[in-house]
Design a protein around this nucleic acid. Structure first.
Lengths: 340, 340
DNA sequence: ATACTACCTGCAAACGTTTGAAATTTTTTG
DNA sequence: CAAAAAATTTCAAACGTTTGCAGGTAGTAT
């Protein structure tokens, strides 16, 4: 790795002090016009690049923020990251992305590392294992240093500078209510992992909606998945073997809904004729598959943008702001898979 | 933002020198056992975190690498990033992710910034605009500093420490050959943007395969898309209005193939009965839609892992390695959408 | 008591940059 | 030409950490 040219190198070459070089390159007014031009031209020629590391040390500002997410390989999560990026890129921030794979250990190591790297903010979508374990000491560390911590999608009370989530409860409620209003009476739910906030909220929306409409909540119709398309196959196959079939399935996301559709079709049943299907996320593909999938829209990009906004507002205000918790509305997009 | 505790702070508290504290915390053998324990306990108590920035300055090692990609919000790209992450995380590297949105200007700014941040390597998937413009000065900068530069998916001769791509040409060739062997004679292609390597290679595979089998290459059957599902609608609609319909469509990726399927169905035609459809990427969803989509698998995660490997090998070897260009094979996954 | 060793700790420099204040040079003014 | 003013440059410290070397203090052997 070639040694990068430093200000000192240039100073030596020009027999002047580093201060002069620094000022010349920064267009400081108290530098002679000729000197400035010469130095700038030379710097340009030798490809001088200011060492941001030393600057960070000096200014105690790294212009870097950390983003910790369970996964990145998924429409919703990556949309969030693009949202954050688009919000912070104009301000010159760099994103340090960390993927926890839902593991507590990695999450906590990443927090250490980011703090050690002196990031100016942390955007965190808590991992499943962290939820399960109930360990939040790593977040204490962030709080102690009073670095802005913004929760994304998955919240945890009491630590945050802010959070951006969507209204999972009402989103699920609306989806199930739509199924009921189009005549469905025996609605199954493919739920997400236990203890995960978004999954629990959607489950709650499903249950409360059934109750509101005086429909029984049948444990046999509530089945586990892990958000992945494959994980829908086995539970839905089980559903298809019940003595009395459901007439609708509400999936915790589009992936499992699409998995469900496959099993239903393979069973020779018609969607939505025999069984209606609805999902959650409104992934772009959902509008194009057949039948197109009814889904609750979840504005990932918007979530990222709002989170970035919380961060920048926090920076700009001198005094401590109260925690700002934004809940974006979720919208039901009705398509063929639930047509009356 | 609370000032982080420094080694100096601890030294002052214990009336000893920073050197002693540093050595104690690093378990240097020449430090008295008691001193060491006391200092470590205290450091732990006050939540000391080594300042990685100052260390980076001292060692000229940042343990950070830059990743520049056109987008992140897409199954293939994000799989690559997860692959890179999984390969470099165990070595303690942090990823700086930059999204160019296919813009030359952003790409070039990001390169500046990463170099300024003294990243130890750059993983780059060249943006469309950069291809179009033919400007590669920003890459010169990386080369001049002899920082490892690894191309991903989209290559450019003459700059790289290495590259990882897949065999787009043969992938496309195999897909089209499969269509021909199952009796298709009038095969349309939904191509990607002009000048983009992966798109051009697939187009070439399509054309060469037709030629090999003595089928005419009909310009009317080659249509533009931008990889997004929506962008398939208009061109495929046009196809459906031709006096003589195609009997197969090969899409530059799964997204446009799925878009095509929708238009075909809306036209009342049968897949694969009337028109067969094949895509490229083998996104997980493709196995579950109806009919399931024949597609060329593109191992995104593997690409990322191989790229990480090139980087680490480069670091470990003292002398200059020759550029290492890995071309991963692409595999055709046959499904219902092209059933004979 | 002296010299030797072993053990522990401190000094100072280094990484690259910026910046207030001081020093130097140049220009202007009387 | 001298003095004051203006313009330009340099000095030195700072950010937090590590590390080779020198210095110091005991303990031990002679």
């Amino acid at each position: 790795m070639n040694k990068p040219v430093t200000i000192k190198d240039i100073a030596k070459k020009f027999k002047c002090s580093p201060s002069t070089v620094s000022r010349a390159l920064n267009n400081h007014p108290s530098i002679n016009e000729d000197t400035r031009r010469n130095l700038q031209e030379y710097a340009q020629k030798v490809g001088y690049q200011r060492n941001q590391v030393s600057l960070s040390l000096l200014n105690k500002k790294t212009a870097t923020i950390g983003v910790i997410v369970p996964t990145i390989n998924n429409y919703h999560e990556s949309a969030i990251i693009e949202g954050i990026e688009s919000g912070l890129q104009p301000l010159g921030y760099t994103l340090n992305i960390c993927v926890t794979n839902e593991q507590y250990l990695l999450e906590s190591e990443y927090v250490e590392k980011l703090l050690s790297n002196r990031v100016e903010g942390v955007f965190l979508s808590i991992s499943q294992e962290t939820y399960d374990s109930g360990h939040y000491e790593h977040l204490e560390q962030i709080k102690k240093r009073s670095i802005p911590l913004i929760f994304i999608d998955r919240e945890y009370e009491g630590f945050a500078t802010g959070s951006v989530t969507i209204d999972d409860y009402h989103g699920a409620f609306k989806a199930v209510e739509h199924l009921i209003k189009t005549g469905r009476k025996r609605i199954a739910h493919l739920k997400g992992p236990n203890g995960m906030a978004v999954a629990e909220e959607r489950l709650r929306g499903y249950i409360e909606c059934l109750k509101k409409h005086d429909l029984p909540v049948d444990e046999d119709l509530i089945l586990n998945t892990n958000f992945k398309v494959e994980s829908a196959i086995e539970p839905v196959t089980k559903l298809m073997n019940l003595p009395e079939l459901p007439d609708a399935i509400f999936g915790v996301n589009d992936q499992v809904a699409i998995g469900a559709m496959k099993v239903i079709r393979d069973k020779g049943l018609n969607i939505p004729g025999d069984i209606a299907v609805a999902g959650f996320d409104n992934a772009p593909i959902s509008a194009y598959i057949h039948p197109s999938l009814t889904s609750v829209a979840r504005p990932g990009r918007q979530i990222g943008i709002e989170a970035a906004k919380i961060f920048t507002d926090y920076l700009q205000s001198s005094e401590a702001l109260p925690s700002r918790n934004i809940v974006l509305p979720s919208e039901l997009i009705v398509r063929e898979s639930t047509a009356g």
